[in-house]
Design a protein around this nucleic acid. Structure first.
Lengths: 107, 107
DNA sequence: AGCATATATGCCGTTACAGCTATATTGCCG
DNA sequence: CGGCAATATAGCTGTAACGGCATATATGCT
């Protein structure tokens, strides 16, 4: 089974998830937004299903896909220890820009 | 240039970043931790460099790699809208477990 | 039943990537 | 200068992934 990280590596899959954030959608809606063929979208959906990131519900001929954000917690957990680090970096950058700004003002 | 997501898709690369969280390291240290060959590690480091996730400093024959967490902010930004969603799911799960627990206790 | 709609699957070609071995590069030291 | 240590690069290979087209499957409608 592919890791959640690997699943998110594909931009089309992230795009699908982004759309599903607004609520469940039939496959056709997803195809419209993606500029890839319907079979390709179906394949991406299978990957997302296997990763537990979406679930399906049947509605007549259509299948409505819905987001299951649970596995994203794994990504967030990995990211957590880094979060404060880049915040610190940005702070440092801001301080430096601030210094430059003051130097410029005193010219 | 590969997206940060794609760069993080490889577990070895994530592992390298994890090690570098503790401070800068020469390549050899990274090789020891990874159970892949030195050239392979060097290649991963190149990918990480190109993605702006690490930077190098020369120390005699060695190269010391250091973390640059900045690009991870992009991942975090993408993740942000989902965060509250899975928190909600977990809350719901906890509530359910809580109910079960109480039912069990009242038996 | 027969056709239309919606989605999934199979098959194929192409490309990208991760790994390895061998070799080049760079810097140190005797 | 010659050789060792550390790292990078080149070349090769196997595999996996993405995409497309054609086709299968499932459901609804008439």
């Amino acid at each position: 089974m592919a890791s959640t990280f690997a699943v998110l590596a594909d931009p089309h899959r992230r795009q699908i998830l982004d759309v599903l954030r607004d609520g469940e959608r039939p496959v056709n809606d997803l195809v419209d937004g993606l500029s890839v063929s319907q079979p390709t979208v179906s394949k991406h959906l299978k990957v997302l299903r296997d990763a537990g990131l979406v679930e399906v519900r049947r509605d007549a001929q259509r299948r409505l896909y819905r987001l299951r954000p649970g596995p994203l917690a794994e990504v967030d957990a990995w990211l957590a220890p880094y979060r404060r680090m880049w915040e610190d970096s940005l702070d440092a950058l801001e301080r430096r820009l601030d210094v430059i700004g003051r130097e410029d003002g005193s010219r």
